Amino acid sequence: MFQTAPPPDRPRRLPLVLGALLLAATAGAARAEPRKVILDDDGFSLAQWLVIKAPETQVLGVATVSGDVWQKEATANALRGVEIAGRPDIPVVPGATDPLLNSEALTERWESLYGKLVWKGAWMKHWVEPTTQALPPYHGPDVVPDLPLGNPVKQPSAERAADFMIRMVHRYPGQVSIIETGPFTNLALAQRLDPAFAGLAKELVYMGGSLNPRQTRTDAVAAQFAREFVNSPRREFNIRFDPEAASIVLRAPWRHIVMVPADPATDTELTPDLIKRLGAADTPVAHALRTRPAGFPLWDEIATLVWLDPSLIVKKTELFIDANSQFGPGYGDILSWTPGYEPGLGERKNIVVQKVDVPRLEAEMTTLVARPQPPVSGRPLP
C-alpha cells in the first residue's frame, strides 16, 4: 500500500517546534519560581514586612538574634510581625542570646578605656546626652515586655536559627539568599557548625558597618543619628555588638555579598509624611505602621529593598571587607581595602551600596505596604 510522503522539511520542523515549546515552558517555570530568602534580625520591622509582602518571594523563615533588644523580645516581635502580615505559616526561629565573646561587662570595660558608645542595644541604660529618641526599658534577657502592637499567639520554632539556616541551604543549594539586618552571631555559628554553609547559600545581603558617611539631611531628628559616626566613622552597631562573629562571616566563602553600610541611609528618614503615606492603605501592615515612631533612617529598609530591586542602587563600589576583632580603640570597626590591597587572610569582595534612589525607594515601600497579601493555603513549609 502506497502512502503519501510528508513534505521534506516536516521531520526537521517538528523537533524544532517541540524544542521551542519546551524552552518556553522551562523559561516560564523559571520566572514563576519564587526567590527564596531567610531574614535574620534583632527585631522585626517595616524592612521584613516589605520582603514578606513582595511578589515572587518565598520567605523560608525569620531568624532572631540579640542586638537592639534581647533575642526573646526580638522573637516575640517577629512572631507578632508575621501574624500582622497574615503569614503565620512563616517559621520564626530563635537564635543566639549572647555574642560569641563580647558582653555587657566587656563593653562597659571598653567604654572606661576608650569612651562612651552612642548606642549599646539591649545593654543601653541611659543616654550620654539629651536626645529626642525614646530610651527603651532596660531589662534582662529573659524578660519580654508587652508589645505595642499586641502579644503574639503564634509560637516560635523549636529549632535553633543556625541549624535552620544550615538545613535550608542544604535543601535548596545555591538558591537561598540571606538578608542580615542584625548582629552576625547566628551566621557565624552556622558557619562554624558547617563550613559548607556560606558556599551553599546563593548570597548574603547585610546592613552593617560604615565607611565614610556624611550626614546629608539637615533636620534635627536626622542629626541625632549622625552622632554614632561623626567622630568614629567606621563604627556601626550591628558589627560592634559582635565583632568576632562579623569577622567570621565576612571571611566565609559566600558566592556573592552585598554590603549596605550606614552611608546611604544618611539620605533617608522615616518622616511623619512618609508614615502617613505608608499608613494610607487599608492593609493590616499599613494600620500597624501608623503608630510607628518617626525620625529613624531607613537602614534595614534599604537592605531589603535593594535585594528586591537592585536598580534602586545609583552608586556602588567593590571592596574587600572585614571587622576589627582586636580589643582596643578600634574594636568592632570596619576594615576595608580596594581590590589588590587586601591582606589575603580570607577577606571577601563585597558589592558596597553607597547611594540609592530615595524617591523610588519610598515609592516602592508604599506600593508593597499597600499590596494585598495572597492567601497562604497551599504554601509549602520549610
Rank of each mutant, 00 (worst) to 15 (best):
P253G: 05
V230Y: 00
Y114A: 00
A20R: 04
V169C: 10
T131W: 12
I52G: 03
P284D: 02
A54D: 09
P148Y: 07
D194A: 08
T216W: 04
M259K: 02
T283V: 01
V314E: 11
G95F: 14
G328I: 05
D146W: 08
R235G: 00
F164D: 03
L14C: 03
I84G: 07
I257K: 04
D89M: 09
T64G: 05
A196I: 00
W299H: 13
P34L: 06
Q326C: 01
R80Q: 13
V59C: 07
V258C: 06
L289W: 02
M168P: 05
Y341H: 10
A196T: 14
F296H: 14
A96H: 06
R348A: 03
F237N: 04
Q71C: 15
N231Q: 10
M207A: 10
S336G: 01
L106W: 12
R292N: 06
G346N: 05
K72Y: 11
K116E: 14
G174Y: 09
R31M: 12
E236K: 01
R167W: 06
F241D: 02
D242S: 05
F2N: 14
I166T: 08
G67M: 07
P94R: 10
E269M: 13
D68E: 12
V369S: 06
A280T: 02
D267H: 14
R235D: 04
G332Q: 08
M124S: 10
W123S: 11
L113A: 13
Q71V: 14
I178S: 06
R371E: 01
A27T: 11
R290M: 05
Q3I: 12
A32S: 15
P148S: 09
I166N: 15
A288L: 03
N238T: 15
R217Y: 06
A303P: 02
A265Y: 05
T271S: 15
W307L: 04
L204N: 05
E301Q: 13
G140D: 15
F229L: 03
T366G: 04
D219V: 03
I90E: 04
E342M: 00
P284E: 02
K202V: 03
N212H: 11
I239R: 07
W254I: 03
N324P: 02
V59T: 11
I239M: 08
E104P: 03
T271W: 05
E73M: 13
G344Y: 01
I166R: 13
T131V: 09
